[in-house]
Amino acid sequence: MRDNYGIAFLLLIILTVVFLGMNLCIGSVNIPLSEVLLALGNRKGAGISRDIILGIRFPRALAAVVLGGALALSGYLLQTFFHNPIAGPFILGISSGAKLAVALVMVLSLKMMLRPGSGTMIAAAFAGAMLSMGVVLLMSRVMDRMSMLVVSGVMIGYICSAVTDFIVAFADDADIVNLHNWSKGSFSGIGWEDVAVMSAVALTASVFVFLLSKQIGAYELGEAYARSLGLDVMRFRVLLVLLSSILSACVTAFAGPVSFVGVAVPHLVRSFFRTARPMILIPACFLGGAAFALFSDLLARTLLAPTELSISTVTAVFGAPVVIFILVRRRKGRTG
């Protein structure tokens, strides 16, 4: 695939578009593609299916695209930061920290009869993500073994989830259902306004990530070499932490914690493109994350319809084996 990046990108784009189309067509009511296109073209005559598509399915699918991409990129940045292929926002407990902060803000504002805006939610998620990130960073200074770091990340995740459950238990009955769904991870109930906000945040952050391509490439050879090339390592590391936290916070604020996308997608993309070049990997991760999220959401909605699975259930089924595979392969590489 090397040097054929164009073809690889084309395949990835086709995949994303196909999944997007399937997400629009398939559901409790199956809508033929022609009608979907008609609705998207804003023509009259589509009726109820137009409402379903424009009001529910399309924003939800777009959210999957943006959030899936953001999550994959966030994972990619964390892997770069820790020089560790299984680092990711969920595994390191960063998503759970964000979840905790969001749940706290939600419950508090509901108690005060306020409806928090999406900006507030992102801010809360960001604060929670940074807090978890801070703890992970502190621990990473003591633990040089990557497996230990991951284990402590998972523990942080459990602690945050436990506290979140505790908080959710205090919420009013009527809100619980909603909050409960969200705290397990779901793309449901996302409207156009949310899509606008998340796109603004996630896409801006992604552009910044892309602008860091050259620096990320230099960092690939380790801190000491990066510094010897003239990279301001301190500043670069701060940027990595901020951007990955913003990206995963954005996801958590709207969809709750979504597992394994951040680890699995960058790995799959690396194997597919067979390169380490950030210029290639960054857009490829975003697209890959989008396709993976669309695919997972499709399954989450349709497998046990009319009951919806949480998105993390699906992503874990496909993502966790990838993590295991990475671990096994690395172990082999070390001894063999």
Partner: peptide
């Protein structure tokens, strides 16, 4: 510089490793 620490970049060809030395001379996107 050439240091003692062993680097393990994944999926980088030798040429790409050598190319990283051009970092100080290339533009925004390297």
């Amino acid at each position: 510089v050439m240091l003692t620490e062993r680097i393990r970049p994944e999926r980088m060809t030798c040429r790409e490793v050598v190319e990283s030395g051009r970092y100080p001379y290339t533009g925004r996107f390297g």
